[in-house]
């Protein structure tokens, strides 16, 4: 990579932040509008890939010191815990529960255990995409 990518690097910094925010929005909105864990996770990893294009692998690794394999594991853990959590309430596997709450700032909100499951998906998708790209990148 050449070093004089200032425009790209500056734009990438801002844009990736925006993309990640958007991915979080799209992730939470998944139950009502298009979006969800898959798209959200992919968008977030897209943002990191953008950073990778602008900078090099090491810089990005310094910016986001995360072991993505652990992210995969954490995601799988959250999802499977949500899935099997229903067993403790004497309900079949995968049963979700939801309720409407009046929360400060957010107003009338629905809280849903499916979001937890989707959070697992979100993390797994980020984790595997970045694991793949990072390991391939490192091997060069």
């Amino acid at each position: 990579m050449k070093t004089n990518d200032i425009i790209l690097q500056t734009v990438a910094k801002v844009a990736s932040l925006v993309i990640i925010l958007f991915s979080i929005y799209i992730f939470f909105g998944g139950h009502y509008s298009p979006g969800g864990g898959f798209v959200g996770g992919l968008l977030a990893s897209g943002a990191i890939v953008l950073l990778l294009l602008a900078y090099d692998l090491k810089t990005v690794a310094n910016m986001l010191p995360v072991d993505y394999k652990l992210v995969v594991a954490a995601g799988l853990l959250i999802s499977s815990a949500t899935v099997s959590g229903a067993l403790f309430f004497d309900a079949p596997l995968m049963t979700h529960a939801y309720q409407y709450f009046e929360l400060p700032l957010l107003g009338h909100t629905s809280l849903h255990t499916a979001v937890l499951f989707d959070l697992g998906v979100y993390l797994v998708v980020i984790g595997i995409t970045m694991t793949i790209i990072q390991t391939i990148g490192e091997s060069e």
Binding site: G30, H31, Y32, S33, P34, G35, G36, G37, F38, K69, V72, A73, G75, L76, S79, S80, V83, L93, M94, H96, Y98, S110, H112, A114, F117, D118, G120, V121, V124, V125, G127, I128, T131, I132
Partner: peptide, 29 residues
């Protein structure tokens, strides 16, 4: 309790499929 039917199918009705899917992805990674 969801309006996006596709997403509801993925995380709720057919959630086990999704569960295995992300497992497969993890294995691939």
């Amino acid at each position: 309790g969801g309006k996006n039917i596709v997403n509801v199918i993925l995380v709720d009705f057919r959630g086990l499929d999704t569960m295995f899917e992300i497992t497969v992805l993890g294995i691939a990674a």
